[in-house]
Nucleic acid binder design. Structure first.
Lengths: 151, 151
DNA sequence: CGCCAGTCCTTAGTATACCTAAGCACTAGG
DNA sequence: CCTAGTGCTTAGGTATACTAAGGACTGGCG
């Protein structure tokens, strides 16, 4: 086993808690976000994809699946929901016809904006009640954890 | 219904980013955690429940569902997976036979420990590569966001 | 030129996890 | 007892994810 590299001495409640706290907080927030989905039949993943497309412009399916860290087949399903609901379209890549570019429709852009606004209504309301330092800590933690998640 | 309170003027990149960054980071981490599940057939929610039971002792189903912020019916299903895999048992509450106390079996306790260790191996490895200030920011953000999620 | 390996995407089948609705089991108060 | 309320379960449906398998296209090599 890792007789030397295991950092057992980094505090007491700290190490036992940090990873666990991150997991716990992520689970709670994820479920909370999921429950904040009163409109439409689209799930949160599909809405996330729509938001990304709205911000970044057209992406291939493989790119989207890498962004979300899911298998291409999973992303294809999520894109199916978006396209069958009329919020996104698939366009064959003119340079490489194996690829498919996914982009938002005008309705999709509207929904992305509306979704963002609705989400911000609740979450920003909570975040703005915090002190600037707390907000800064959260921003920092998000950046760090996103990097970790993407590694 | 967001006709009145929508804060359109709350900055430029900051507010648009903070809520969005939180959501994005949570989504990425959640999927990452989910993919870090090589062993057994139990999902991450079921493992979380097992971990809570291991730490807190027997709980009723309603208590568990409140802990996880899910409907009692959902928790009942998760508990079903645990019990049918032999990691937890249901015991009628002697004082109120409507209630059911859920507790871990010895195998469940072992699995909880092993799960925690496996999770910590990866996540703590990442977290320990950060500076103490960064770790502190994450700990703080987790505490704050857990409170927000639970509100 | 035609074949073949590799890449990109899709569909099919399966599993987890969440929900609402409906119903059973039990408790407590008339 | 009978009835209202509480705790839990099951049934049915949706979203998301995976693996496996196959179709469409590209590019290189005989």
């Amino acid at each position: 086993m890792e007789t030397e590299a295991t950092p057992e001495h980094l505090g007491t409640a700290d190490e036992a808690g940090l990873g666990g706290h991150v997991r716990s907080a992520v689970g709670l927030l994820y479920r909370r976000f999921r429950s904040e989905r009163p409109e439409g039949t689209l799930g949160d993943t599909a809405l996330d994809v729509l938001t990304w497309l709205h911000k970044q412009g057209p992406r291939t399916l493989t790119q989207l699946s890498e962004d979300a860290h899911v298998a291409p087949a999973s992303m294809s399903q999520s894109v199916n929901r978006l396209t069958s609901a009329g919020y996104a379209i698939r366009t064959p890549d003119p340079n490489d016809r194996r690829k498919v570019l996914i982009s938002t429709t005008p309705e999709g852009a509207d929904l992305a904006i509306a979704t963002r606004a609705r989400r911000n209504t609740w979450l920003d309301g909570q975040l703005h009640a915090l002190s600037p330092e707390d907000q800064h800590a959260i921003a920092r933690a998000c950046a760090l954890l996103s990097t970790i998640a993407g590694s």
